[in-house]
Design a protein around this nucleic acid. Structure first.
Lengths: 214, 214
DNA sequence: AAATAACCGTGATTCTTTTCACGTGAGATA
DNA sequence: TATCTCACGTGAAAAGAATCACGGTTATTT
């Protein structure tokens, strides 16, 4: 399968979600400019993204919703369900567990890890909680390649290392701390502190623009 | 104050956090390549980012840690504490509340909103919970310009609209749904579904690269 | 059946972001 | 004090991403 830029992958994910909503509403086809409006982008960009994954669009009717969803899914998803591990069962971890419980047919959290021995063995949201030391065997046994890291800052680097050694190849990191991992592990940072600082900055810009300040 | 690109702003936020850690460890100065290594970037980019905000670096000793932190803070932060609202007090909302409680000196969640009347009036993590209908008066009263949106999908668009009307100028959106707001409101999406799909995709790429597949 | 209109596919262009590479200057060394 | 080293500051080049613009195609209309 061809390779696409990260930006394109992000947008494809977004398109698919919106397409599913549209499908649920009974819509059979969409135009590139419809999708563009939904994601606040341009029609040309939507077409280009779809071109990347070799999609088929009809001149007059636009894109077939079902076809598009299938094409994006074939590109983004694995054939079978991807097992995911969650590390860290604090408030955030539980929220994520609940969030992903329902939201995705192809990505499933199948194990959670925490270093609190109190939690070991308990079942949270349908997931068995393991101690950190059990990681290698559980990850290998369940063929886990993707993990969500929701531990407190300070513990993240260590956990990432353990994940890497256990064979994980992608980490979604919620800790506000850059991870040092080898080149064969993809890291996506969800840095909430950074994000909030950024909106605060941009909100201030907007505000002073509005108030006529330079 | 000059304007910088969004990417630069993100990196500045990251630099500052790492600099604070370095300062805590007693470090007095850093080189651009030190910072670069920490954020997995290049030295030239670090220098360029710092140049953007008009920083001073010394040829031989690199950058003074204290100076840099101050310079970045002056650029990113408002002079006084920025009051923030949180909308949605589910698991995620509570996790965010806890997360931001300690993590930031200049950004403070001062009010939470939820449409569950049960929660109205209660105090969660030191924050009074208000009903959605109280938003206009509370937001105006506390001069809130930034909000974190942690409501379930489906409720996000409506909440965003209310926030905008109440005067909010920046929204950090955790709902997997693009928001339609006016141009004077900055939106930053923390789309966990998209992020997880993306790492899963990239992990798969890494995996097949490793296994010799084309 | 011909004309029309609307949208897709994509080469070319423009704009943004990153990297390169080199002159400059500050401290160390002898 | 002269030289040497090393990192900063930054113009210029490269790479990457978004946009433009137009030929081609398909349904609809007359």
């Amino acid at each position: 399968m061809k390779i696409a830029s990260e930006k394109t992958i992000e947008r494809l994910s977004l398109y698919r979600r919106l397409l599913r909503v549209a499908k649920g509403a009974g819509q059979m086809s969409v135009y590139s400019h419809d999708l563009a409006e939904m994601v606040r982008g341009t029609a040309a960009q939507v077409r280009r993204d779809l071109m990347e994954i070799g999609c088929a669009g009809n001149s007059k009717k636009g894109y077939d919703v079902d076809n598009l969803i299938d094409a994006i899914s074939e590109f983004l998803d694995s054939d079978d369900v991807t097992p995911v591990a969650l590390v860290g069962v604090g408030n955030l971890g539980r929220a994520l567990l609940q969030f992903f419980e329902s939201h995705h047919p192809k990505l499933k959290i199948v194990a959670v890890f925490d270093n609190d021995p109190e939690k070991s063995g308990r079942v949270i949201h349908g997931c068995r909680c393991y101690g950190m030391s059990e990681m290698p065997v559980v990850v290998a046994g369940k063929k886990i390649t993707v993990a969500v890291l929701a531990v407190p800052v300070g513990a993240a680097q260590n956990a990432a290392k353990q994940l890497e050694e256990a064979g994980v190849r992608g980490i979604l990191n919620f800790a506000p701390e850059p991870l040092r991992v080898g080149p064969s592990v993809a890291v996506e940072n969800m840095d909430m502190t950074m994000a909030l600082e950024k909106v605060a900055y941009m909100a201030r810009q907007n505000n002073s623009k509005e108030n006529g300040a330079k």
